[in-house]
Design a protein around this nucleic acid. Structure first.
Ligand SMILES: [Zn+2]
Ligand SMILES: [Zn+2]
Ligand SMILES: [Zn+2]
Ligand SMILES: [Zn+2]
Lengths: 133, 133
DNA sequence: TTACATAGTGTTATATTATAACAATTCTAA
DNA sequence: TTAGAATTGTTATAATATAACACTATGTAA
């Protein structure tokens, strides 16, 4: 019936939810997303969480763990969510994805003394943004 | 009635919950903690969450954001949770607090291009531990 | 074309994580 | 000793996330 929107590999629900997150100036929570897509026929939490899971998996969005919220990846060379870093303003809650090659390389090559080889990291910085300080 | 256990500044509930977390080889979730302290008279979620909040605030424990779970700080010079880093095994779920002075200094002095000054960071590395790989 | 596998959808119910609100008690320091 | 701050106990509820199941759509290959 409804054709999938294949021009960019995303299914219908994935595309609706990605568009919403991508247009948002701030991280969106799952239930905020749900309320905002009900007019498009997405009615229940599992539909939202499934799309979110997939979008995270393919690197189109990232989860801000400390906020249980999601942002679109602004970082075209972000290697499928293997190395993410964010700055988070503790006052206005603005989140920016940090794309700093030196930082990314430094952390990607960091090896734990105890012999663990890392596949992935997530880094969250907190402070006050320019406006708020 | 019941005197507070002041030998180390922790209140009764805080001490009970800290002891449990400190003895655990793995991160503990809030409701796991609740089930395990009910025999000591802690009956309801707010009692657990209040103690956890306080213990995090004073740096005795840390929250592993990606797991919604808590570990005791193993890092005596950990500056009240201002700079935390963890290694997390994706197979056995073991978590280790990383205390690497160079890493800590590198990240603490990292400044975002957009003029944000950071007060705090949390870094989570994921991979397979020695045993699991 | 048909058949099969994989991925996505819609739906109901429920599990898990966390906080609001309020009354009472205990601790601290002046 | 007494007032403020911190902690406790309690009930209820909010917020976040998943289980389970029936069904539909899509891609691949015989
Ligand atoms: Zn990214
Ligand atoms: Zn701000
Ligand atoms: Zn620590
Ligand atoms: Zn392991």
């Amino acid at each position: 019936m409804t054709r999938m929107h294949k021009e960019n590999n995303l299914s219908k629900n994935q595309q609706i939810i990605f568009d919403l997150i991508d247009r948002s100036p701030e991280p969106l929570k799952a239930y905020t997303i749900l309320y905002n897509v009900q007019k498009k026929g997405i009615n229940a939490p599992p539909q939202v969480y499934r799309a979110l899971d997939k979008l995270v998996e393919i690197g189109k969005i990232h989860k801000i763990e400390s906020k249980n919220a999601f942002v679109a990846c602004k970082n075209s060379d972000c290697e499928i969510s293997k190395a993410t870093a964010f700055s988070i303003c503790e006052s206005c809650e603005v989140v920016d994805e940090i794309s700093d090659v030196k930082l990314s390389k430094y952390l990607s090559s960091f090896n734990h003394k105890k012999g663990m080889k890392f596949k992935r990291f997530n880094l969250e910085f907190f402070g006050l943004c320019k406006k708020c300080k």
